[in-house]
C-alpha cells in the first residue's frame, strides 16, 4: 500500500485595488468565461451582490452557487475560515480568486492564505482606475495603502482607459511604473481581460503537444481579446528554476508562462510564471512529456526568438 498523495495545491489569485477600480467586473468576466473550470471566488461581503444575476444558480447564506460548478462566498472578517471551508469542499475548486476589500493589502491576504497548505499563490492582480488612480494615490489618507497594494502586484490592470485621453493614459502608466516597477501593466476597458492572463488556465489548454507557435486567435474563446500566445516544445533538460526566473524578467514582458519542462534530472517539472512571479513544482500525477511551454503577452507579440534561445541554453 502506498501513502495517499497529498491533494494538489489549489492555485490562488488575489485581486486587489481601491473601490471602483473594477474588481467585481473582472470577477464576473472570469466567471462568465470559466468554461468548465471550477472557479471559487471569495469576496469580502455580499453587500452589493457581487455576481451578475444571470450567473447565479442558487444562494444559501454566505454561498452563491454559479452555473458551471463555480461558487462565490463572502468571508467578512474571517478569511481563514472561508479558505479552510473551501479547501474541504467536494469537488475542490480548480482555482481560487480572493477579492480584497478596497483598503486591504493583497500581499497580506496572500501571506495568510499560505498558512493553509492546500493553496499555492498564483498571482496578485491589482486593478487601478485610469481616471482616478493618481488622485486616490495622492490622497493623504490613502497614499501609502494604494502604494502598498501596487507594490505587491504581479499584474496591474489599468482599467477604464477608454475614459481618459491618450495623454492621461500615458501619465497613468508613468505614475504606475514608479509604484509597480516590476509588474506587467495591462490596459483594459471594463476589465476585459483574457482568462489565460489572469488564471493561466486557458494557457494550460493551449500547451498541448499538438500546437506550435500558434497565435491565440485560432484556439481560444478569448479570441477577440488583444493578447498573443506562443507555444514551445522543450525536449532537452533545462534548469527549470533558472528558466522560470528568466521568463519572469521584465524584458520579455510576459504576462504568463506555463507548462511542463524536463528538469536536469529528466523528470518533468511544472512551471508557472505570472508577470514577475514564478514558481516551479511537481506536475500533477500522470503528466507525460514532451516538455512544452506556452507564453502569453498582452498587446504585443511574444519574442519567440529570445525564448527559443533561453530554452536552448538550458534555462
Amino acid at each position: 500500500m502506498t501513502a495517499p498523495e497529498p491533494p494538489a495545491q489549489i492555485p490562488l489569485t488575489v485581486i486587489g485595488g481601491y473601490l471602483g477600480a473594477g474588481k467585481t467586473t473582472l470577477v464576473n468576466r472570469l466567471l462568465r468565461r470559466a468554461d468548465g473550470l471550477r472557479l471559487a471566488v471569495l469576496v469580502n461581503e455580499f453587500g452589493d451582490l457581487p455576481i451578475d444575476g444571470d450567473l447565479i444558480e442558487s444562494r444559501d447564506g454566505n454561498v452563491i452557487n454559479i452555473a458551471g460548478g463555480c461558487v462565490c462566498c463572502s468571508y467578512g472578517s474571517d478569511l481563514m475560515a472561508a479558505l479552510m471551508d473551501l479547501d474541504k469542499r467536494d469537488p475542490r475548486p480548480d482555482h481560487l480568486l480572493v477579492e480584497a476589500s478596497g483598503v486591504a493589502l493583497p500581499a497580506a491576504i496572500a501571506q495568510s492564505a499560505s498558512l493553509i497548505a492546500g493553496y499555492a499563490l498564483d498571482a496578485i492582480v491589482v486593478l487601478a482606475d485610469a481616471e482616478t488612480v493618481r488622485a486616490k494615490g495622492a490622497d493623504p489618507y490613502l497614499a501609502d495603502t494604494i502604494a502598498g497594494q501596487l507594490a505587491s502586484a504581479d499584474i496591474v490592470v489599468l482599467n477604464k482607459v477608454d475614459l481618459v485621453p491618450d495623454s492621461g493614459r500615458a501619465a497613468a502608466r508613468d505614475w504606475l511604473s514608479a509604484r509597480a516597477p516590476h509588474a506587467r501593466v495591462l490596459e483594459t476597458v471594463e476589465a476585459e481581460l483574457p482568462l489565460a492572463a489572469v488564471l493561466g488556465s486557458g494557457a494550460e489548454r493551449l500547451a498541448t503537444p499538438e500546437s506550435h507557435h500558434d497565435h491565440a486567435h485560432d484556439h481560444h474563446p478569448d479570441h477577440h481579446l488583444d493578447h498573443q500566445a506562443a507555444v514551445f516544445t522543450v525536449d532537452a533538460p533545462v534548469d527549470a528554476e533558472a528558466l522560470a526566473a528568466a521568463l519572469a524578467g521584465a524584458e520579455l514582458d510576459l504576462v504568463r508562462a506555463k507548462g511542463f519542462v524536463p528538469g536536469r534530472d529528466g523528470r518533468l517539472r511544472a512551471l508557472h510564471v505570472v508577470g514577475r512571479r514564478w514558481r516551479v513544482a511537481d506536475p500533477p500525477p500522470g503528466t507525460r512529456g514532451p516538455g512544452r511551454l506556452v507564453c502569453i503577452r498582452f498587446a504585443a507579440a511574444v519574442d519567440t526568438a529570445a525564448i527559443e534561445r533561453l530554452i536552448a541554453a538550458g534555462g
Binding site: L19, G20, S101, G102, V103, D139, L142, D144
Partner: peptide, 11 residues
C-alpha cells in the same frame, strides 16, 4: 511605520 485602514474613506 503606520497601521491599517479597516474602512475606505468613501464608504
Amino acid at each position: 511605520k503606520n497601521g491599517l485602514w479597516y474602512i475606505t474613506p468613501d464608504e
